[in-house]
Design a binder for these strands. Sequence first.
DNA 1: TCCCATGTTGCTAA
DNA 2: GTTAGCAACATGGG
Length: 257
Amino acid sequence: MPELPEVETLCRQLRKAIVGRIIVGSRIVDRKLDHVQTLAGERVDAVSRRGKRMIWSLSGGRCLAFQLRMTGRFFWVEGEALPPHTRFILEFDSGRLALSDPRRFATIEHIPPPPESAVADGLSPLDAKTLYAAARKRTLPVKSFLMDQKTVSGIGNIYASEILHAARVAPRRPACSLKPADWERVAGATSEILQRAVECRGTSVSDWQDLFACRGEYQDHLRVYGRAGCACPGCGQTLRRDVIAGRSTFFCPRCQK
DNA sequence: TCCCATGTTGCTAA
DNA sequence: GTTAGCAACATGGG
């Protein structure tokens, strides 16, 4: 799915577009979403985010939680034409919101207001000591550790490679083998990269688009993702692609130790 | 035709 | 208990 920066981009845009507004009507296009109850008459009181999950607080007291997974996108629609692969439509008096999702992996859930989460969000400052402690007994590759959402939420496949390159840590190292100094660099790189990516409205390596169908710009700042065979921007060594836990992983074999 | 894809879950086996 | 590996979900692009 979109990773944290892409979901954060949507949250910021949606806050301006729909918070305080009443849902006039909702329409389910994809029967996989038949369980979503009617939303007509509810007001959207807040739009928030937990990692890659977006949560709307509704005036009725409940919340709607969206997981966009791989290809879910929200588009603001002012004319008649709906985007391709529209699965769900929400109508406001100011316009319509379409959930488009070619692969149909996205999920929508009605949930009670969620309690405060114990998991650190990738956009908030991370504490290196907490990461070190959480990884102490974990032998899985540090890249998988960063992506598993249980310690830090929001990091996906693209940003995991970027973060580890910036922190000069080899992705296959067991999580428990990182020293406190390594975690300091990982923590710093995570905040820095995710914040930059939010400022760029995400990464459009394939087809990511924001609420207004604009591409992000962080793909112009990627240093390793998708660049196997290219020179490492740090040292000039040829970048490699390996598969870790079934996912493409890009790294520099010289400057990442 | 084959392989790949920004995610998550659940199964099996080591 | 932990982890690796795989399949599943479903579709489109190169």
